[in-house]
Amino acid sequence: MMRIAAVGDIHLGTDSGGTFAPVVRGLAGRADVLLLAGDLTQHGLPAEAEVVAAEVAGAPLPVITVLGNHDYHSNAEQEITAILTAAGVTVLEGTGTVVDIDGARLGIAGVKGFGGGFAGASGTDFGEPLMKAFVRHTKEAATRLRYALEALDCDTRVALTHYAPIPDTLIGERAEIYPFLGSYHLAEAMDAGGAALALHGHAHAGSERGSTAGGVPVRNVARPVIGKPCALYAVGSGATVEGARMAAPSPSPSVDLAAPTAP
């Protein structure tokens, strides 16, 4: 079994130094990899990313993250990515990475994702340019997640997003805001890409557990949802995922960050 520690929405500010490092240190020997589901910072400031970097620097396990909407707030996502990468964090955006755990290969594909809503109550690529840009941003993110999952050469695939792929893990949030919390296109990508587990954050008042239509277990690991410093999951190394394809794992994939609106 491969042990995954996961948490999202830690929202560190410049006043948060020293709060997350003990959590990371405490995972030594208890987890094989730490996945962060975005919203590492409060305002998306590079100074806050420096705090995050200091908290996870020297982590006793690989740290892999996607960014969240807060991390984009100050238009400094590139700089934040560079700061985190320099601290040894793998930042995913439409990309994947493979971690070797005692001979078993755990593949993680990640994307921030976006809103848009869920089947039957979703935005469509129609009408004003802004509306089209909104929906296209979601669809692009989902497509890139699917390709990133499919490209992983590994035994077990995990999808990591900030936004939610299903409404089940949003229960507790007001139904009216579901379209701002996630998109079913992400779930489609997870099903198509053969994920064994999907982790997301963003919905602080949501619920921890759900499943995609295709049966992929989904967990909302937003810090307020899990109610503890991080959640721990064990995934089987099981049979090699069928048709595991090409694509050599890239230890530090180049990050092509999604623009908030299409150019």
Binding site: M1, R3, A5, P217, R219, P229, C230, A231, L232, A234
Partner: peptide, 10 residues
Amino acid sequence: ADGTTKVETI
């Protein structure tokens, strides 16, 4: 991370 956190097996 406290030692009592449960591990969920997927």
